[in-house]
């Protein structure tokens, strides 16, 4: 701030202080974080792959060929080789981004909305409502997430829709727990009391005073869940509970290629590498986002 006492209208203008918004500050910090930029670019590339997949594939990803099965990496015309049915692996990996990312992100997005709503209501209301919501959620939380996802998926039957539903149900408790604990913290602040003292309704207080202060941590946590969701979705497909052949999906590809693990181990590992890169990118990004959001000047 300038401290110039000069009473010149031209000098008054710079005194007007507008703080840049919080999210803008966070964005600025992320832009200066090299690691965040790198994983951010990888994520953008993966999303682009998912969006424009059909236009990027060099071959038809569904075209089989009995004579060109399990060609090694670097084969002419098939830079990443072919799978056990002779389909071009590069094309399948590119197109696979679509289903894999969709199965990884959708449950988290759904769980983010439902879980936040449940957690914020429970955290703000406290008392018996909190007990009812959180104890119900604890029942789900008691199972290991993989087991729960398999159990629900298995009970509902195979298929993408059921796999998404089961994953969403797995993540709701996790998101709700984080939302509840953050909200409980925020609820104790004096500005909430001040808002109540001004006569605002609970809904208005949640919307204007609570939401902005709890959504950050919940968002970061949910971003971290995307990698878990990717792996679980791949796992479900691997077990035959998610995507069905011949659709390309990394988990399913990992499953079908496992027969080739002795003859072509590199090829068999490729879908796993994609899963690894994607999940670690989301994980690191969530971590850097947390760091960027934590510090307050």
């Amino acid at each position: 701030m300038t401290t110039s006492p000069v009473v010149d209208p031209a000098q008054v203008a710079p005194l007007v202080h507008r703080s840049s918004g919080y999210w803008r500050t966070v964005g600025g910090r992320l832009a200066r974080d090299r690691l965040a930029l790198v994983v951010g670019l990888i994520i953008v590339a993966l999303l682009a792959m998912a969006l424009f997949g059909p236009w990027l594939t060099p071959h038809d990803p569904y075209a089989t060929s009995m004579i060109r099965r399990l060609r090694p990496i670097g084969t002419e015309g098939h830079p990443l080789g072919t799978d056990e049915l002779g389909r071009d692996l590069l094309s399948r990996l590119i197109l696979g981004a679509r289903l894999s990312l969709f199965m990884g992100i959708t449950p988290v997005v759904l769980a983010f909305f439902i879980g936040s709503a449940l957690g914020i209501v429970a955290g703000y209301a406290g008392g018996w409502l909190n007990a009812v919501i959180m104890r119900t959620i604890d029942v789900f939380y008691a199972f290991p997430s993989v087991l729960l996802a398999i159990a629900i998926s298995g009970a509902l039957g195979a298929g993408i829709g059921n796999a998404l539903l089961s994953l969403t149900l797995v993540f709701i408790p996790e998101v709700a727990r984080v939302a509840e604990s953050v909200t409980t913290q925020v609820r104790g602040r004096d500005y909430i009391e001040a808002a109540r003292a001004s006569g605002a309704s609970a809904l208005l207080i949640i919307r204007t005073q609570v939401f902005g202060n709890v959504i950050g941590p919940i968002f970061v946590y949910s971003t971290g869940l995307i990698s878990v969701s990717m792996i679980l979705a791949s796992g479900l497909s691997f077990l035959g509970l998610g995507v069905r052949p011949p659709e390309p999906e990394w988990g399913l590809m990992l499953n079908t290629l496992r027969t080739a693990i002795y003859s072509q181990p590199l090829i068999a590992a490729l879908p796993g590498v994609m899963i690894f890169i994607t999940s670690i990118s989301f994980n690191v990004f969530a971590d850097r986002l947390r760091a960027a959001m934590a510090v307050r000047s």
Binding site: S19, D190, Y191, Q209, G212, N213, R296
Partner: peptide
């Protein structure tokens, strides 16, 4: 500090 919402001007 606690009595002002940190996200509001």
């Amino acid at each position: 500090y606690s009595s002002l919402n940190p996200r509001m001007t």
